[in-house]
Simulated assay, not measured.
Amino acid sequence: MQLEEFFDYKNQLVQDLLTNETIVRLLSDDCVRINNPETLVYNQVFPYEYIPDTVERGQTFICCDVDVQRSVNKTFLLPVLYVWVFTHKSKLRLPEGGVRTDKLASEIAKAINGSRYYGLGELDLYSAKRFAPITDYQGKVLTFQATDFNRFTPSGKPVPSNRKQG
C-alpha cells in the first residue's frame, strides 16, 4: 500500500460527493442546484478534518480522512474512511422537513457504501455517530471500513545473508 491510497481514497470520495446532485444541493443553504460543484472543495468539502475557526455565517461542511487501524498480516491492511458531516444549527431543518445532516449522511452512505472503488472488495459502513465540533454546529461522523493490500510487490530489499535459501 505504501499509503498512497490515502490520497486516492480522498480524491475518489470528493469526486463521489461532488458528482452526486442530491449531496451538492444539501450543501447549499437553500438546497438549490450549484452549477460548479468543484468550487465547494476547500470551502465546504475538505479532504481532511476541518473545523472552521471563525463563523461569519452558518454553513454545511463535509470532511474526510483515512486511517489504517491495523495490519491483518503482511498481505492486508484495514483502512478506515471517516466522513464528518456538520452544519450550523440554523441550517439543520430542511425546507421540506427533516434534518439536513441526517439526510446528508444517508445520501453519502447510499453513494459509497458497498463501493468497489475503495480497497479490495466492497466498502462497508461500520458506524454513524453524533458529532458536534464547535458551538452551534451539529452533525454525524460516518465510519467505513475496507481491506487493501499491504504490499503490492516484494520490497526489492536484498535477502539477508544468514537467511536460508531454497
Score class of each variant (00 low, 15 high):
E4R: 14
E5N: 11
E5H: 15
F6I: 15
F7H: 15
Y9F: 15
K10I: 06
K10A: 07
L13I: 05
V14S: 03
L17W: 15
E21Y: 04
E21P: 08
V24H: 00
R25L: 13
R25Q: 15
L27Y: 01
D30S: 09
I34T: 02
N35T: 15
N36I: 11
N36P: 05
E38V: 08
T39G: 09
T39C: 09
L40S: 01
Y42R: 12
Y42M: 14
F46Q: 04
F46R: 01
E49T: 05
Y50M: 12
P52H: 09
V55C: 08
R57G: 12
G58D: 04
F61V: 03
C64L: 06
D65E: 09
D67V: 11
V68S: 10
Q69M: 13
Q69G: 10
R70S: 14
V72D: 13
V72P: 02
L77S: 02
L78S: 14
V80L: 09
Y82E: 04
V83L: 05
V83Y: 00
F86W: 02
F86I: 02
S90L: 10
K91Y: 05
R93N: 12
G97Y: 03
G97Q: 04
V99Q: 04
V99F: 06
R100Y: 02
T101W: 01
L104W: 01
L104Y: 00
L104N: 00
A105I: 03
S106G: 13
S106I: 09
E107D: 12
A111M: 11
N113Y: 04
N113E: 11
S115G: 06
R116G: 08
Y117I: 04
Y117T: 08
Y118S: 03
E122G: 08
E122I: 11
E122Y: 11
L123R: 00
S127K: 12
K129R: 14
K129L: 15
A132F: 10
A132T: 14
T135C: 05
D136L: 07
G139L: 05
V141M: 14
V141N: 04
F144E: 00
F144A: 03
Q145I: 12
A146D: 03
A146H: 00
T147C: 12
D148R: 03
F149N: 10
F149W: 09
T153D: 09
T153N: 09
P154D: 06
P154F: 05
G156D: 02
G156Y: 01
K157H: 10
K157D: 07
N162T: 14
R163E: 15
R163N: 06
K164T: 08
K164L: 10
K164S: 09
G166E: 10
G166P: 01
